[in-house]
Amino acid sequence: MSDSVAASLAEAPSYNFAYLDEQTKRMIRRAILKGIAIPGYQVPFASREMPMPYGWGTGGVQVTASVIGPDDVLKVIDQGADDTTNAVSIRAFFQKVARVAVTTETARATIIQTRHRIPEHPLTEGQVLVYQVPIPEPLRFLEPRETETRKMHALEEYGLMHVKLYEDIARHGHIATTYAYPVKVEGRYVMDPSPTPKFDNPKMHRSPALQLFGAGREKRIYAIPPYCDVVSLDFEDHPFKVQAFDKPCALCGAENVYLDEVILDDRGGHMFVCSDTDFCEKRRDAGHVGEMTEAAE
């Protein structure tokens, strides 16, 4: 490590390896370790200014910068896509400040930084999934006081979470929360899984990968260590259900994956395709076709 740090310093004298100075990384790593020790608990940390605006993933970037080593292979996705602005610039950032290898392939990556999705390809032991989190406090919707929400977590007073779900059913007839759907981790802390679709919630449960969450503006880090129980909150008579889609992916024909709507023209034409671009490409490379690709052939 120290050799490579020295080497990278020599090559890019204006930046420390992975941008953050070593003391900051130590501080963040301590927060991460504490988060791992107490699954689902929000650990305050001294979030730094990053060379990008809040809301662009500064929390996730700081977490990634603190855990990344020169041998890591990094994948960055935004809404499941590797090629959107946010993903491209964060990937470029780490290529520049850490000179790490990057990939779009989920299976090859050792660290995956994500905004709003969990890849479709199952994660494995040794992989780290870093989430960018805008609002880490699941109780914030109904309780504005931070002192009170911290106390509620400490005393396990989570009735309020169900009040939110109750309101959903009262208004919509079903639990209408479709993203940032609250979960309980290891039977103890209620946690906001970041604005991922609830479709991805079951993937968090007993995942072999380490899941880290960074909220830069709110200065919180939390974690789900591998193989932890992650249970979505619900009612007995309104059990948790993931979204279901009427049709498979229009490009690769995949079923039981999360689909994005793509507008095709200004006459209402649209199609549903995999939100996970890497997954979709891999399938198409393997010869799978969907409605649109069939039509094109």
Binding site: V163, E236, D237
Partner: peptide, 10 residues
């Protein structure tokens, strides 16, 4: 209050 004491049937 019912939810706070564990009532889970909407």
């Amino acid at each position: 209050r019912l939810m706070a004491v564990g009532d889970r049937h909407y």
